[in-house]
């Protein structure tokens, strides 16, 4: 069993001037840092902040519990969760039997497949966003489309008579 040496680690010998070639440029970072003290510290603070937010929200805004499920209601206005608002708005663009199937199942599946295939769609060697305008612009367009749909559906829901406080 190799004898475990204790005490001071061997000083790192002077690295001879390394020739940076095309493929080993991304081997080392410019400013590496140990994972344990530094990154873990940052992770801890972010996680702690998230924990505090959840606890505050848990007490400030208790998770709601509306009246029990009852199909035979005539005055309840069902709403999707906030993260499906954009899909709800997407539903409105595709009325009618054929279009609902297309807009509701085909499009999300295509979106998922494209999402899975991004590494094979984006073959540009450059990493920084400035060097790959197509992918970044496409990504930005998709994100704005989703966010805009989210707001559109939120405004529509807020302005439904039953939906808003003063309506």
């Amino acid at each position: 069993m190799a004898e475990i040496k204790r005490g001071q680690a061997k000083p790192a010998e002077e690295e001879e001037e390394e020739i940076i070639t095309e493929d080993n440029v991304f081997e080392h970072y410019d400013e590496p840092q140990g994972f344990f003290p530094n990154q873990v510290m940052a992770d801890l603070t972010v996680s702690f902040a998230l924990l505090v937010i959840t606890i505050i929200l848990a007490y400030a805004v208790p998770a709601d519990l509306v009246e029990p499920m009852d199909i035979s209601t005539t005055d309840y206005v069902p709403r999707p969760e906030w993260f499906f608002f954009f899909l709800d708005q997407w539903l409105i663009y595709f009325p009618g039997a054929a279009l609902v199937a297309f807009g509701d199942i085909a499009m999300p599946i295509i979106f998922a497949i494209v999402l899975f295939a991004i590494p094979w769609l984006d073959r540009e060697p450059a990493y920084s966003p400035a060097r790959r305008p197509y992918m970044v612009v496409l990504g930005f367009l998709v994100i704005t489309a989703i966010v805009l749909n989210l707001f559109l559906s939120m405004v529509r829901i807020l302005n439904f008579p039953g939906g808003s406080p003063a309506g």
């Binding site: 805009l148 405004v155 807020l158 302005n159 808003s164 406080p165 003063a166 309506g167």
Partner: peptide
């Protein structure tokens, strides 16, 4: 006009056709 009171500025922005008109 939106459903909220006319006096609250927030609701005037939240009228239903504001966002689509902007886009």
């Amino acid at each position: 006009p939106s459903n909220g009171p006319a006096t609250s500025v927030g609701w005037t922005f939240l009228n239903p056709t504001y966002l689509p008109l902007n886009m």
